[in-house]
Design a protein around this nucleic acid. Sequence first.
DNA 1: GTGAAAGCGCTAACAA
DNA 2: TTGTTAGCGCTTTCAC
Lengths: 349, 349
Amino acid sequence: MTEAMSRPTLEAVAARAGVSRATVSRVVNGGNGVRSALAERVRRAVEELGYVPNQAARTLVTRRNDAVAVVIAEPETRVFTDPFFARQLRGISKELTAHDNQLVLLLTEGRDDHARVGRYLAGGHVDGALVFSLHLDDPLPGLIQGAGVPTVFGGRPGWGEGARARPPAAVFVDSDNRGGARDAVRHLVDLGRTRIAHITGALDQTSAVDRLDGYRDVMADAGPRLIAEGDFTPLGGERAMRELLDHAPDLDAVFAANDLTASGALRVLREHGRRVPEDVAVIGFDDMSPIAEQTDPPLTTIRQDIEEMGRLMARLLLHRLDRHATGDTVEPPPTSVVLPTTLVRRASA
Amino acid sequence: MTEAMSRPTLEAVAARAGVSRATVSRVVNGGNGVRSALAERVRRAVEELGYVPNQAARTLVTRRNDAVAVVIAEPETRVFTDPFFARQLRGISKELTAHDNQLVLLLTEGRDDHARVGRYLAGGHVDGALVFSLHLDDPLPGLIQGAGVPTVFGGRPGWGEGARARPPAAVFVDSDNRGGARDAVRHLVDLGRTRIAHITGALDQTSAVDRLDGYRDVMADAGPRLIAEGDFTPLGGERAMRELLDHAPDLDAVFAANDLTASGALRVLREHGRRVPEDVAVIGFDDMSPIAEQTDPPLTTIRQDIEEMGRLMARLLLHRLDRHATGDTVEPPPTSVVLPTTLVRRASA
DNA sequence: GTGAAAGCGCTAACAA
DNA sequence: TTGTTAGCGCTTTCAC
């Protein structure tokens, strides 16, 4: 005898309870309109047989999965290393499980993965998708669009004018990157700094572009000498900081695209004997604990509530799915959300 | 018009290609035994219609999902914080995607979650499960057993003699906790230490118990004064270290149940003016980078290859699933694996 | 309130 | 090689 003697079916339960399959189905799904005596008998049969509905069969007819995919377009290395994702996933997970939905985590590293993920989504495994960390040239939105799966994006998707498949109304949750960046730079200006440099994030992501724009809003006349390209990592921050010190040795402040970048910049500044904040004021973005608190000196930064972003993404998606189910009420235009940021003052600026 | 005008079915493709559903099915599933001219026509129809097989329907008949659940019995807080899980998940993910299987991550925090996870597994969403971080009183193994899902455990499951539902042959992957612990303590002995204390891990997990046993193997005559209970966290390490200094101020070495614990212990030792390793030698377990390297002083520890454990778990499970599918060949007794550990010397001992 | 019957979209014998 | 025919286990009209 092999291990998997097949699980009991509705049929079996019905037989045992002496009722029809339809009745069992009703009881299993809430039991409305079933006389309580019968319902009780059915429930006992379910219990005794250890019956659990076969999801594939159920999904086949209801077209519901009660499962949502979270797609992250980054190597696992980063996903499980960068606290950013952890925080966001926590928010999502909380909201999802609160509504009895499963979270299915899909990581994509390369081309092959994209195809696999596309198939998975199109295959109807999930009712919706939460997608983040998109890059400009990413084929994922197209695939998802093609799969026809309701989706909410984390961060404003970066479909340029040239993009083929710009969804008419992509819903996303983002924080106010541009406004936050403006606040950061203005803070440096208020501190009396005049030669304020910027280390960008990975410019194939909208968050990096928006922060750069915010910087430019305030420093309209800043020359290219004061801008160096980073990639959201400490190493990128180090490299960019060195470049800046080379091209603009007289700088007196740096706005780094995120805290990780700032931490790299701080290291290089220390290495070069520049005191922070006396010689050079430094400000980051994210307020990612414990990074921001543990730098030397502790980092002044722009805070965004990452967990809340995750929660919100999930909430928007679930809401959309429910609407969808309700049927013929007119679909309200899905609304994206941009969350505010706040300045957190510590010692570095 | 609502957004989801239903996706094309096999039927539609068949009609368009002017063949039967069966033929389309054959082409879609590898196309063996279909004349290539026909196959080509079918493929074109698939392409034109953007056909993607409905997984629920397919699963319903094949009973395969090509998906594997990873169940972690810890709050997300720890999952995405403790590098341990990240490492293990990376190994699992690599192996799974290499074999075109989806990884479905299930996190369980409380009672309700257990029920939900049980339903999910029993519902046949996945072909198998990878489960770790089990605690002694955990209802999960019972649920999984009940769900009849092939499973591989990470870490030896701790079914005591009293446990109700001990699976006859649970497959697990573990590292040699007891042997590693012996090596750690012997190393301290070799260093000439005689009053060697131990801070345990969470004793409701077998890894903690095994490491304690390893300690006792070498320090058979150690009094209870030299043993303090921790919980695998830095804070637990601090608390336990204080307790030890209280009860056994003359100790000259500490074997901590993991690196996180050791880092807490180091902090307290420093606080109390004990020099490491001169006054007190300290050794950890895991060799978790970057923790082990970044403590002050860098930590001597017992290394286990966590990513490899993950990879191995996945491999064992997939192997099992294949066997299963093959049908009537006699099921080989599933074999658990215990991986060796190695001593990594740094400055703390 | 309850049951009979018709599929959901697919695969897998079995025939042709 | 290809088509025909049964289902997989469930929900859901529609009668009763």
